[in-house]
Design a protein around this nucleic acid. Structure first.
Lengths: 190, 190, 190, 190
DNA sequence: TATGAATGAGTGTTCATTCAT
DNA sequence: GATGAATGAACACTCATTCAT
């Protein structure tokens, strides 16, 4: 991966995230990266190929974090880290994840099996954690949490929310940290 | 709103949902609606105007349901109906909501104040419900549930999930229905 | 076929014949026809489609002449008219035939069954003429003449030849006209 | 002419013949010859220069054969060999001649004086042969035969014809071989 | 109201050619 | 000699939009 290739990738991610994939002409990428337009096609074959390269680079980083979580043994720690994951990812690479979400609904991308792999690994780890902790419906519990986290990611990207206090609130729900007050919630462990 | 206008709107929604807004040429809409391309512009001014019209028509229907929920007085009933709302909406108008989600991330959305209005009304209703029921952090509880429901909507649109059992699971968590088994969950009411 | 369509067709034939199909950009056709480039694609779908339209228009005219020959009954008259055909065609529409020949070798065109049809009809008519006249190998005789005429067409398009005297010479060979001198050729009727 | 130069020439001839000159990118030639694209330009200066080199190499081979014919003294033998020439050339180097014909009509040809030279030499030899044999219009006779042979070459390249029997038929016409049957043709020696 | 011919700015992509190494 | 990254000028084609009828 040459220097210019990295440059193109980074400029393209910027623009795709800001303007959307379809709305970003390759000519603009070339201009802002100060390379010829042809170079994009020499290296990535097509605009779509460029997008793939961006996604693959990002997915590699996700996979590393997911693997690290899957290796944990303490169930509480697994759940905690899964809850923290979207916040970390999005804070580190907000643009990448904005693009990722935009693509999910745009009929453009078959989510590159790697993403599926991450999600599956995460799901499995969560399930075992809930199971170990004696939750009665660990599968539903897992599904519930995963869906919430998808919503959370989406909200972080599109709204102004106070993530930290919300995350803490969730962790209290799952008994991962002490509530600051002594009061209990009414939410039940099903 | 003449017959042809309705026809254009309906064909356009179909195509936008299936192919995406940017990827659907007005020529295709015209052909499938069997009207001339010029007519679209005479009626809706621009392609963007056509999109607005679709969105507004849909929002009107949402607003009606939201208002009906906001008029409820029983807090449990409010929460129940809020939880049921996304399922109802998406089952009734899956195409419309697919488009709505696609737009949300596509930098395209001029968020049509009406949508905000609905969300605000819903948020307020939920907050009062949780407050009435004595939840300690009704604001966080509201935020949590709203975000979960956003995730749920998204999951319904992009994955194959068993909504009914999941929704029931959630309702048990919020003590809105009896758990089928006698077991309790570990989730705490914060 | 609107006025502008005809205009495009005629300008395109001019340019294709002069510069070759591949070497003529649609932008140049548009500019010289003083229409927008998009109009070419609206009417003919693609550059290739434009070429097809040109060829079909020309083939229609050929077919008419061929049919007229095929209806002749006098064998001498048939042969005479077949010999005269390339000269007439090329003198009338030199550009069209230049294009036609260029295409034949350019791997671009499958010669549009209509052309085959004309050739077959001509071949059949010639065969019957030679047969009627008692030639021993009317099939070979036909093949020989057809191939000569192809060479003649080619020569008319690429060289400066005195067609008239050459054609007369050929007609004498086939005993269709009187030799101007009394001498005989040595060419044999096989 | 190094080994790599020959390799490039041969690959390029293959591709030009198969796909046409304009439709063959230098990148493809480089890839199939397993050399860098730059090397083509170092050796041949330009794509056009590459074509010239191919053409010249081929012409050299033609010239040799033509010279050999021109040195014949027996007029019958000259005519025979001229008739056989296209068959031999095309059977030996079909690709080269396919390219040659394609170029002839493609407005591309800078007719490489060498080709003219061959044709002129052939024409002169034929003329003398016909003259010696007492043909009344040796010039017309020559022109006629040359044009037929051009048609024959073209037909060999574009159609499926039985060349051998046709060539034999022609030779009988010119009284160069005995007809297989005893019948005579009606073709006259003008 | 309704048509559809016409526009023109833009899009992704190709390709012969150059040049630093 | 040989490479391959890099260029930039084209190219075919698309599409939202306009307008005369």
């Amino acid at each position: 991966m040459t220097e210019k290739q990295e440059l193109i990738l980074s400029v393209a991610l910027n623009l795709f995230a800001k303007q959307g994939f379809a709305a970003t002409p390759t000519s603009q990428i070339a201009k802002e990266a100060q390379v010829s337009e042809g170079l994009i096609f020499r290296h990535f074959g097509s605009k779509e190929g460029l997008l793939q390269a961006i996604l693959e680079e990002g997915q590699a980083r996700v996979q590393a974090m997911v693997n690290s979580i899957a290796e944990e043994t303490d169930p509480r720690r697994i759940i905690t880290r899964v809850i923290d994951l979207p916040v970390q990812l999005i804070e580190q690479e907000r643009e990448f994840w904005g693009l990722q979400f935009a693509l999910k609904y745009s009929q453009k991308i078959l989510p590159s099996k790697q993403q599926d792999t991450s999600v599956i690994a995460l799901t499995k780890a969560l399930y075992q954690a809930f199971d170990t902790l004696g939750y009665d419906y660990p599968d539903k519990e897992t599904e519930f949490l995963m869906i919430f986290l998808e919503g959370l990611s989406s909200a972080m990207l599109t709204q102004d929310i106070q993530v930290n206090s919300l995350v803490r609130f969730v962790k209290v729900k799952y008994d991962l940290v002490q509530a600051q007050s002594s009061k209990k919630t009414q939410l039940q462990k099903v």
